[in-house]
Amino acid sequence: MEDSILKVEDLCYSFHTYAGEVQAVRGVNFSLKSSESLGIVGESGCGKSVTAKAIVRLNSGTSGFCKRGTIQFDGKDMLSLKKKELLNVRARDIRMIFQDPMTSLNPTMKVGRQITEGILNAFPKMKNAEAKRIAIETLENTKIPNPEQRFEQYPHQFSGGMRQRAMIALALAVNPKLLICDEPTTALDVTLQAQILELIKDLQKVYNTAIIFITHDLGVVANIAKNIAVMYAGKIMEYGSAEDIFYNCKHPYTWGVLQSVPKYDADASIPLVPIPGTPPDLFNPPVGCAFAARCPYAMEVCRKAEPPQYHAGEKHTVSCWLYHEMSPTVVNPITNKEVTL
């Protein structure tokens, strides 16, 4: 933990709305070492994007506010950072890639200019020509053909996949310490998804960047993330290495998610198993475990009190009452073994 570049502790983030306070993130803890990758997985509205944006305070234009918790990045307290320092961190150290490449580039500015703008903002003393050289080099690294020509083009002359590559180039051109990918492949078709994932994975090695990868698709993070946090209703339900999550997962929610992922070799006649019900209302989060209402293993205690966090391995943690010593024994539907820590 000593050398962790990012440390998020007990982060609670809420939004004021006319209907009241939405508790989007309700106590999230994780840390990330430099050049490591973390996947945050969860369904829509579970707070994964809010968590990521909170790191660089990109939610602050909205009605959102940080209720509790700390975010330490590279020895800096991100939540109390002065505006100017915050902009410096955004410019140089933490860059983001967003979900929809069709709308995340400015349509009236040349792509090259958008990249050099970011570079020059991070390194104000750099000469324009040097920034342009770096931009073209980065475009080349993201496997965009004819980068010199593409540099002079507008976003509407790029296809969706090319735009996402340009976004990646825009983010990586300053060689940031942390790259936050907020569902970067969700808006792309499947073949492009694979290419973009491959690209991000390759570039991580080249640029030696730490990555937070947000997605609702477990299949996507399997490929890219070393550690995975499974989020539900603003909380991390289970955290562990990719192996822990895929081969030895502990939380009933993770089981549900894994069971609802289609397998390429599955018999077509076997229906997918969905998780019944809908996520809880975050205006009034449930008192006990947020997943209790949809959990087939829910016990009396699950509805009354929040489960403690159990350590199942070196990094592997799980928040579920099933691991209490007094709980009944159940069978893990993924491994078909009785659950133990």
């Binding site: 902009l87 410019a91 860059r95 967003f98 929809d100 709308t103 970011g118 903002n121």
Partner: peptide, 19 residues
Amino acid sequence: VMNQDYIMTAQSKGLTRRS
């Protein structure tokens, strides 16, 4: 326009509000 994604991209580059 201020709610468009590319404005968030611009902010994520660390540009000042003025820029």
